[in-house]
Simulated scan of single mutants.
Amino acid sequence: MKTIFITGASRGFGRLWTEALLQRGDRVIATSRDITSFNELKAQYSDAFVPLSLDITDRNAVFETVKEAHARWGVLDVVINNAGYGVFGATEELSEKDAKEVVDVNLFGTLWVTQAVLPLFRAQGNGHLIQLSSVLGLWTLPTLGLYSATKFAVEGLSEALAQEVERFGLHVTLVEPNGYATSFAGDSAVLSQPISDYDSVRSALTANEGMQAPATGIPEATVPAILQLIDSDNPPLRYFLGKVGLQRTKQVYAERLIEWEKFNHVAIAAHGK
Rank of each mutant, 00 (worst) to 15 (best):
Leu41Arg: 01
Thr31Phe: 03
Ile29Asp: 01
Val66Ala: 06
Ser32Ala: 15
Ser46Met: 00
Arg72Asn: 03
Val50His: 04
Val28Trp: 05
Val87Asn: 03
Thr91His: 11
Arg72Pro: 02
Ala48Leu: 04
Leu54Ser: 09
Gly74Val: 07
Tyr45Ser: 07
Ala71Lys: 13
Lys97Asp: 15
Asn39Gln: 15
Val87Leu: 15
Ile80Lys: 05
Ala83Thr: 12
Ala83Cys: 10
Asp47Trp: 00
Arg72Val: 10
Glu96His: 01
Asn82Lys: 12
Asp55Gly: 05
Gly25Lys: 10
Thr91Arg: 06
Gly74Ile: 04
Thr65Asn: 04
Ala69Thr: 03
Leu94Ile: 15
Glu40Val: 10
Gly89Val: 08
Ala71Arg: 11
His70Trp: 13
Ser32Asp: 14
Leu54Thr: 01
Phe63Gly: 00
Val50Arg: 09
Gly74Phe: 06
Val28Lys: 11
Leu22Asn: 10
Arg72Phe: 07
Leu22Tyr: 03
Ala30Phe: 07
Arg27His: 13
Ile29His: 01
Asp47Gln: 13
Ser46Gln: 10
Thr65Glu: 02
Val62Gln: 12
Ser32Phe: 06
Gly86Trp: 03
Gly89His: 06
Phe38His: 05
Ser46Lys: 06
Asp26Asn: 15
Val28Gly: 05
Leu94Cys: 04
Asp34His: 12
Val66Thr: 08
Thr57Lys: 08
Phe88Gln: 04
Ser37Glu: 01
Phe63Gln: 12
Ala69Phe: 04
Asp26Glu: 14
Ser53His: 11
Lys67Trp: 01
Ala71Gln: 13
His70Asn: 13
Arg59Ala: 14
Gln23Pro: 00
His70Asp: 06
Glu64Phe: 08
Ile29Gln: 02
Thr36Arg: 15
Val66Ser: 12
Ser95Asn: 02
Ala83Gly: 12
Val62Asn: 10
Leu52Lys: 10
Thr65Pro: 04
Glu40Ser: 13
Ala69Asp: 05
Val75Ala: 07
Ala61Asn: 03
Asp47Pro: 00
Tyr45Ala: 05
Val87Lys: 08
Glu40Asn: 09
Ser32Asn: 11
Gly89Cys: 06
Ile80Val: 15
Ser32Leu: 07
Ala43Leu: 08
Asn60Tyr: 02
Ile56Gly: 06
